[in-house]
Amino acid sequence: MTARAAHSVARGLAALALVAGLAGCQPDRGSAGRPSIRADGQAAPSASAPVGPPDARGPGGAPAPAAPAATADAGQSAGAEGDSMTMTADQVQVLSTSTDPKELMKAAIAAARSPEPAHHDLLKKHLESGEFLGRLDSEEDYRQAAGRRLRVSRVLEALAVNPLPTARSAFVALAASPVVLAEDERTIALLQASAAVRPAPPELAAFWDKHAQPDDGFTPTTVTVLIENGSPLALALFEKKMADPRHEEGDKIAWMRSRILPHRNDAPLLEACERMLQGGLPKHLRPALVEVLFDYRPGEWYRPASVHSPPDRRKAAPEALGVLRRIGERSLKSIPLSETQRKAVEATLEEIKKLLP
């Protein structure tokens, strides 16, 4: 099933669930494999697992993401391939000639992690080759991607977390490569890995925007990535999508309950929510956003198989608590909240008084 088809199915199921009052988010499609990411934007390990490799988030940032799902080479540890920061001459040759997918992945990850700019350029050239991609992941691997991650996804993740400018430039260039983007699975892999590229350059923001269009099938994944990334351009684009009337309101509520909720301790995201509540978000959707920031109603918001959990507010940074307090105080004065929503805001403000010095 393509990303577009999966998205259509997910949207239909979500709409039915919303009408029934059982869920406020697009349903999960399983515990592992790309269709679960494609349909609901979540990483395979859990319903609310963050996307992308660990990376510093700064004050008020989210916890480090969970480990990625198993690759096509099941049984190998997450750090077993290419642990060395030095790429050998033999590995350079492997990239050009090897037909052993495991050996090839190990060499490619070594190039991605390398401190040498020449290795990053070499890897980019190989990843833009259909012949190389075919040696790395077979047609059968793509057919089985529902249960096993492609090897190329591991390579892209390693490249994305390399902070060197040449590594970042190589990654961003791949996000514009027609060869790489020819397969939906590789596009998903690029999107997922891009969450670690902070701060996001304009070229990457353009890639995200291109894959966050109504009914394109990639938007749920992209929204997850924008919030996970948390850099200014990412959050500005998220605000733009929330304000875009072409995206269905049911989807926006789903993003609130499944994407914003797990990160409601993040100060940059709270600041973005504050801006949306002051003007960017349609007025009739603002109470729903306030509810997600101050309350938690899993019985009303989710189906049993797709429950998302909020972070412990006691672990939020003072900066984040300050923004949340400001949002709460303004919301009580300017947003038409229900009695239940008002009580949730008031209870949280009392909690914040105890948490802040």
Rank of each mutant, 00 (worst) to 15 (best):
C25M: 08
K343Q: 13
L13E: 11
K315G: 01
F294Y: 14
P45I: 05
A205N: 09
A47H: 09
R11S: 12
T97I: 07
A347E: 11
C25A: 10
T219R: 06
L204M: 00
R151M: 02
P268I: 03
R11Y: 08
Q213D: 01
Q278D: 13
G82I: 04
L293G: 04
G21Q: 08
G279S: 08
P54E: 12
G61Q: 02
P202I: 06
E350I: 02
Y142K: 07
G250P: 09
R186W: 00
A236W: 12
L18N: 08
G52H: 11
L164S: 07
D251Q: 14
F294T: 11
A15P: 01
S153R: 11
L356C: 05
D184N: 06
L281E: 12
A20R: 00
P201Y: 05
A23M: 01
A74C: 05
A254H: 06
D312M: 03
S309T: 11
A64F: 09
A74Y: 01
L133K: 15
A64K: 02
G79E: 04
P268C: 07
A44W: 08
E140W: 01
I227N: 10
H284A: 12
T86W: 03
L156Y: 11
V172F: 05
G299T: 03
P101C: 10
A66I: 01
F294L: 13
W208P: 06
L269H: 14
A108C: 06
R313N: 01
G134V: 11
K333R: 15
K343H: 10
F218D: 01
R259K: 06
P178I: 00
L156G: 08
E291H: 14
K333P: 06
G147I: 09
G12C: 10
I352Y: 03
T222Y: 04
I37H: 12
S46I: 07
R34W: 10
L226I: 14
S169A: 07
L277D: 11
V172M: 05
A108L: 03
L136C: 03
Q341K: 06
P54S: 05
A206V: 02
A107M: 08
A175S: 15
P220N: 15
P45Y: 12
V179Q: 09
P310Y: 00
K124W: 08
R148Q: 00
S309L: 09
V197R: 07
D40P: 05
P65S: 02
R143S: 08
A67E: 00
A272Q: 12
